[in-house]
Design a protein around this nucleic acid. Structure first.
Lengths: 226, 226
DNA sequence: TTTTATTTTTAGATTTGTCTAAATTTATTT
DNA sequence: AAATAAATTTAGACAAATCTAAAAATAAAA
């Protein structure tokens, strides 16, 4: 069962959008791939044909278990190559993405497993994104600051970068500490402030200032999501 | 000026046939690429279009200076990747060719130059073939045994693998020693014996036995051939 | 030098991935 | 609920790389 480079790109983009936005639309996918909605529809049909995608016309789509597996393998290759480029070939982390976009389509499974060993099984790439293992399992989750989190995605607080007493006071007041599960309910573009929903509590609002200093991680390992 | 993977494969195959056979034909190229003569003709026209090939219909073809340069760069990439796979990823030399066939089409020039540095500028790949530098110059020539040399290709004797007195006697008798320039004029399939032409001397015949123990190299660096 | 064989090229199809423009379906407003 | 807007899909076209079958050019043989 052969999957072309273009198909791999579609699978990968769907996977990412699924992670970040929960829902994936034809238009969003077209935008992400810098292609046209009509082209996306064409490809969706082909991916369905290969049982990599669950798709009904006009009714939306999502990756099948097999499609997800394929997408994760492409992501694994991409991130391992990025790590290689930065750690072994002295590239800067900003310049590796484009090269890895090509390298990720090299097909040899053995190659990528050998590369993984050669690099000592790294678990995050140079941008901080987790690298799945050869079975497609993620052992780490990405840590990002609350200000960058999308809406309605539940995460767990994993760090506080500015530990001033004043900061901690605000957090304590809002019942936010390490391990707290929360999600963003609303973003106010005017000042960047956020309305948060902490589990079992009424909504609270925090400033952009505070949001920048709270680090969060995916609530559960990605591989456990079904 | 973009060159697709398929075009790069054609350029590379033409280059190799040019080296080995002197002349390249549509049929030979089709065989080398495991494709059809008609497909080759189609591609020749495209390569001519891009001025990578000098071609007149029915009259044969050869690489232009620019085409040769492009071919050499692909060969450089192929061989550096092979070296990487064997030396860093512990692959056996027999299994790297196919993987390198894919890796050679990764486009980043910077990548390949960094890889070259990382590998400490090797000058021959795991099969003994020379690796051109980033300007496309070869610093080494391949050493092969006389028994494997094609007809009518002048080479220079670069080594004798079995140094018995009896062997050396035969060679001395035929005026063959290190540095001698010679070419094969005829091969006798019956016993594998060869008729050689040594510069400024009448033709001589040697046995397969002897031919197997004489090592030769291209007479001149490949990069000097025009 | 004709005839025959071989090589090479053309003509026309096919596949993959993309596009534009138009049609259809679903979603949103009024 | 009808009208309008937005999203999605179809229809038809195109470029790249390949193929088969037939034609044309060149080479070899009688």
């Amino acid at each position: 069962m052969k999957v072309s480079a273009s198909k791999e790109n579609h699978l990968k983009a769907i996977f990412h959008l699924q992670q970040e936005q929960g829902i994936v639309t034809t238009n969003a996918l077209a935008a992400a791939l810098r292609t046209r909605p009509a082209s996306v529809t064409d490809m969706l049909k082909k991916l369905k044909e290969q049982k990599l995608l669950i798709y009904e016309r006009y009714k939306g789509f999502k990756l099948s278990a097999e499609g997800k597996k394929a997408a994760v393998q492409v992501i694994r290759k991409h991130r391992l190559w990025e790590y290689f480029l930065v750690k072994k070939l002295q590239f800067g982390w900003e310049e590796v993405h484009e090269i890895a976009e090509e390298l990720e389509h090299i097909s040899s499974k053995k190659l990528i497993d050998r590369l993984d060993s050669f690099l000592d099984h790294p678990d995050t790439d140079p941008h901080g994104d987790p690298i799945p293992d050869s079975q497609g399992r993620f052992h780490t989750r990405r840590q990002i600051c609350l200000a960058e989190l999308p809406l309605n995605k539940e995460v767990q607080v994993s760090g506080i970068s500015s530990q001033t007493a004043e900061m901690l006071e605000v957090l304590q007041y809002n019942h936010i500490r390490l391990g707290t599960r929360l999600e963003i309910r609303k973003k106010f573009p005017f000042d960047g402030s956020l309305e948060l929903k902490v589990r079992n509590r009424p909504p609270v609002t925090i400033s952009a200032q505070v949001a920048k200093n709270v680090l969060v991680k995916d609530d559960e390992p990605i591989s456990e999501k079904r």
